[in-house]
Amino acid sequence: MKKLLTFVLLVMLACLFLDKVGGSDMHMQFNGDEIDGPLEWLFGLVFAGGGLLVAAIALVCAAVVTGVVLAGVGVVLIAVLALCVVLVLALSTPVLLPLLIPVAIVWLIVSRKHKQAQAHQHSL
């Protein structure tokens, strides 16, 4: 199937190429002069390819600039988000103080038991 598909694509490209070579319906003007002759299609393809190359370069440059701008905006947004989190934590500390006292007591009890268990293991 791959060989058949490749063959069909090559035949289609050859037909298109031969249509452009033999076709005389292409008219091109360069600096006000009409270019004709057997290589008229070649000049048209070269100039069209040059336009596509310029367009591709412009798209790449636009993508790079957009990426840099959006990356900068992302860094600023992350900094603003971190600042908001710190501000919310700072404002909620007095409200959380009654909750932190029992947590601190439990933490001290657990850490003392942990230290006693380690001291018991070192003595063995």
Results as ranks from 00 to 15, higher is better:
Lys113Tyr: 15
Leu45Val: 05
His27Asn: 11
Lys2Ala: 11
Val76Leu: 14
Ile57Asn: 03
His27Ser: 14
Leu77Met: 11
Gly50Met: 09
Ala62Met: 05
Gly51Asn: 09
Leu52Ile: 04
Thr6Ser: 14
Leu18Tyr: 07
Leu39Tyr: 14
Ala104Ile: 02
Gly44Thr: 05
Leu5Gln: 13
Trp41Glu: 01
Met28Thr: 14
Trp107Gln: 15
Val73Ile: 14
Gly72Ser: 02
Leu100Val: 02
Val103Asn: 04
Leu108Met: 10
Phe30Arg: 08
Val46Met: 05
Val54Leu: 07
Gly32Val: 00
Cys84Pro: 00
His122Tyr: 10
Asp36Ile: 06
Cys61Gly: 06
Ser92Tyr: 06
Leu18Ile: 09
Gly22Asn: 08
Trp41Val: 00
Val80Ala: 07
Ala62His: 06
Leu13Cys: 09
Gln116Thr: 05
Val65Met: 07
Gly37Ile: 00
Ala56Asn: 03
Arg112Ile: 15
Val86Leu: 14
Ile35Tyr: 03
Thr66Val: 07
Thr93Lys: 08
Gly22Lys: 06
Ala90Leu: 12
Ile35Pro: 00
Gly49His: 00
Phe30Leu: 15
Glu34Thr: 09
Gly51Ala: 03
Trp41Arg: 03
Gln121Ala: 15
Pro102Leu: 00
Leu81Pro: 02
Ser123Trp: 04
Leu5Val: 14
Thr66Ala: 14
Asp19Glu: 09
Gln121Cys: 04
Pro102Ala: 01
Asp19Ile: 07
Val106Glu: 12
Ile35Asp: 01
Leu5Lys: 13
